[in-house]
Design a protein around this nucleic acid. Structure first.
Length: 567
RNA sequence: GCGCCCGUAGCUCAACCGGAUAGAGCAUCGGCCUUCUAAGCCGAGGGUUGAAGGUUCGAGUCCUUCCGGGCGUGCCA
């Protein structure tokens, strides 16, 4: 159950009963002495209604039906309403009968466009955030019962492929150099820059390819296949759920591009400017307040990525039936997507009910605060980054567990290393840049994946030690100790946090919650002995342990982070 | 030039349509292992939220100006 939504609904109803139609604005209490939740909406509502805030608060408190879940409802300060929940109510929410997560009653069909790598090159650190954040959002929305359609909008078309094909032709299409796409690209680029004949061949190759020349197309498909195989390797290592069937390449829209142009023309949105086909919208002004065009067709007749993205938008709404579209792409392209969405709406590709969201994120920065790069200053390959995560984690795990056998040590290090890497990214507010710091993310202290994974293993260990089968535990806990109540409150909030994170497309909300939960469990663990307690207390605490275990697992699952039995 | 994002403790980050005394972790200092994993727990110090105005019962949050940083800005993606 979404506890906050329930309280919001009830207090808002009380406001209405008091003659004011306003949201209760229920939020978690700012301080423990304010209870568990507080309603902040009274002051504003009283102001608008010309009433005294305290008087309205009193009316609301007496009208509110909260007896079943609140032990105390009090007015504080200028007109806050503080709600103290009943421990037995919290306990009932954690009964073995209660599901961890309830599916939404109003499922969306959500298209999530993420990862979207350029197949001309090997995946590098720049692809990490889109891939990880997008996948977490997909898992999150699915966990809440929404229908998710993953779309990997890979770049497989465009001028650079001419260069690569010309180079591939030269090297022989089975060239073992394809094993390292990054080197292959760099070598081709070097050739392109240094040899004018080669550059001409590359350019004509693009024309041939786009004209449908069979040889060029075969070569192109060969290259694409190798590149996709590289991506799949990375996805598999990352534990990302993208598969071949989610790939919807730019080239798939080729046939739609002229249709989009024609439809824009029919809608009267198109105007020619300096030979290019443009859409001018009032919302976009450029220099000197002049209208800023969205160019959808170049003067030479070629199409641009705005055209492809419009075709993609059209496809996602018309063919895939999406009512919410999340495009997980870096913040630099903010203007581009504002334009695509605005033109798309103007063209009728998306109506007002269809949510179009550019899920922006900032850059990964190195410890120096500058753009993340290798020691040599180049772009770091994603595979190298993953290697380093595992390698660093292996050192730490071996150090902490000298007795662990090599195979388990390796597995623990893999789970911890990758978890740390993903969590470091997901736990930050995605909209700003963040400083990438190995020591911080692997420090095993603070808001990190290892801390959460450790909390989980502690529970597993406790259950093992007690010979407890968690599946057999029944009933609901009895909350008496403060640490038990604090833990229970956290546990009871899973649903509201998931829903909030999904609505905002912010995995970091879930991370913050999981950290607070793990922290509450650690305190509970220190203060409340479980296995040695009397039978009734022990059973109650075991239920809390199990619920915590399940909640941590569920939360980490949604983030795409694995758990282990011991570490 | 114009537009968007950002500026919070020494460092890395929080702060849910504007809500009460701005919170965590790291680092620093001090406690806690004969008891379920000390990769842990408990406590202390640390702030003019870049600056100055404004709006209001109330501003880190909204508005204006300025400073500093990042990213964009008609035919790359």
């Amino acid at each position: 159950m979404n506890l906050r939504a329930e309280l919001e609904q009830r207090v808002s109803a009380a406001l209405q009963a008091s003659g004011v139609d306003a949201p209760a604005q229920v939020a978690p209490a700012a301080r423990p002495e304010f209870g568990d939740y507080q309603a902040n909406g009274i002051m504003g509502a009283a102001k608008r209604a010309g009433m005294k805030p305290r008087a309205l608060a009193e009316a609301v408190v007496s009208a509110a039906q909260l007896d079943d879940l609140a032990s105390k409802v009090e007015i504080a300060g200028p007109g806050f309403i503080n709600i103290h929940l009943r421990p037995d109510y919290l306990a009932s929410m954690l009964s073995s009968e209660q599901p961890l997560v309830e599916p939404t009653s109003t499922p969306d069909r959500v298209v999530i466009d993420y990862s979207s790598v350029n197949l001309a090159k090997e995946m590098h650190v720049g692809h990490l955030r889109s891939t990880i954040i997008g996948d977490a959002l997909a898992l999150l929305l699915e966990a809440l019962g929404h229908e998710v359609i993953r779309q990997n909008h890979v770049g497989d078309w465009g001028t650079q492929f001419g260069m690569l094909l010309a180079f591939l032709e030269e090297k022989g299409e089975d060239s073992e150099q394809l094993a390292d796409l990054e080197k292959f690209y760099v070598a081709a680029k070097k050739r392109f820059d240094q040899d004018a004949d080669f550059a001409d061949r590359a350019r004509s190759k693009v024309v041939l390819l786009q004209g449908g020349d069979p040889d060029s197309k075969r070569l192109w498909q060969r290259f694409i296949a190798v590149s996709i195989a590289h991506c799949n390797e990375i996805y598999q290592r990352l534990g990302v759920t993208l598969r071949d069937e989610h790939i919807m390449p730019e080239s798939a829209y080729n046939a739609d591009l002229s249709v989009v142009i024609e439809e824009l023309r029919q809608q009267g949105l198109l105007s020619e400017d300096q030979g290019a086909q443009c859409v001018f919208l009032d919302a976009f002004k450029g220099r000197d307040d002049k209208p800023l065009p969205v160019i959808v067709q170049k003067s030479d007749g070629g199409y641009l990525y705005a055209t492809t993205d419009l075709a993609a938008l059209r496809y996602r709404v018309q063919k895939l039936g999406a009512n919410r579209i999340l495009v997980v792409v870096g913040a630099e392209q903010s203007l581009h997507f504002q334009q695509v969405f605005a033109v798309g709406r103007a063209a009728g590709y998306a109506d007002d009910e269809t949510r179009l969201e550019h899920i922006t994120f900032g850059n990964m920065l190195g410890p120096d605060g500058k753009k993340f790069s290798t020691r040599a200053g180049g772009v770091m390959k994603l595979s190298d980054l993953l290697d380093e995560a595992e390698q660093r984690a292996t050192g730490l795990v071996a150090e902490k567990n000298p007795d662990m056998d090599a195979a388990e040590c390796r597995e623990v290090a893999r789970v911890v290393g990758l978890g740390a890497l993903k969590y470091a990214d997901l736990s930050k507010n995605r909209t700003s840049n963040y400083v990438f710091d190995w020591d911080q993310m692997l420090s095993f202290e603070g808001n990190t994946a290892p801390y959460l994974q450790y909390a989980y293993t502690r529970i597993r260990s406790l259950l093992r030690r007690g010979g407890i089968d968690p599946d057999k535990l029944q009933g609901q806990p009895v909350l008496t100790e403060p640490a038990e109540v604090a833990l229970a409150l956290r546990l009871a909030r899973l649903q509201e946090v998931l829903e909030q994170a999904a609505a905002d497309a912010m995995p970091s909300h879930l991370c913050t919650y999981l950290y607070e939960l793990a922290s509450a469990y650690m305190s509970f663990y220190e203060q409340c002995p479980v296995l040695s307690a009397d039978a009734k207390v022990r059973d109650s605490r075991l239920l809390l342990c199990r619920r915590t275990m399940q909640t941590l697992k569920q939360g980490l699952d949604v983030l795409g982070i694995e758990t282990i039995e011991r570490m």
